[in-house]
Amino acid sequence: MTESLRIHIKVNGRPESAEIAPNLMLVDFLREHLGLQGTKLACDQGACGACTVLLDGRPVTSCLTFAFAADGADLQTIEGASRDNGTLSQVQNALHDCGVPQCGFCTPGMVMMMEGFARQDPLPPGQTLETWMNANLCRCSGYQGFRRALDQLANEAGNP
């Protein structure tokens, strides 16, 4: 029954082409086909956001997205979040400064959510990063570290 299909995806700027089964989930394509294990799988139901990646700039749940649905897309994962020279991005730095990672399992998804927000240009009215972050679960923290990081980012944006 399963027919394979060929997809073309840009992953962190690198073109990838693969023959995949239609039932392959994007998270497995990343973790198993491309070996990009930074994207985490936690709930496998769309509830937690640990598997968040950016699909054409939009944060989506890679455990609820078939790989075929990413055909032709530009995909950003946690592996592409740091700066090209390997140092932390502004978002990652803020999280680092604010002592955010505890167990770290939610962290890649949280980072991608924040990177996705930073990449919204122009930012539609009424959108705040705090409400975006409400999408993702962290069971270790009380989210205050994230709030402190948001404040830091806002300050940095205020006085560049």
């Binding site: 592996e79 990652q92 990672p101």
Partner: peptide, 10 residues
Amino acid sequence: DVNGHDKLTG
């Protein structure tokens, strides 16, 4: 966190 960098970069 001593593993913080790795946790933040995946």
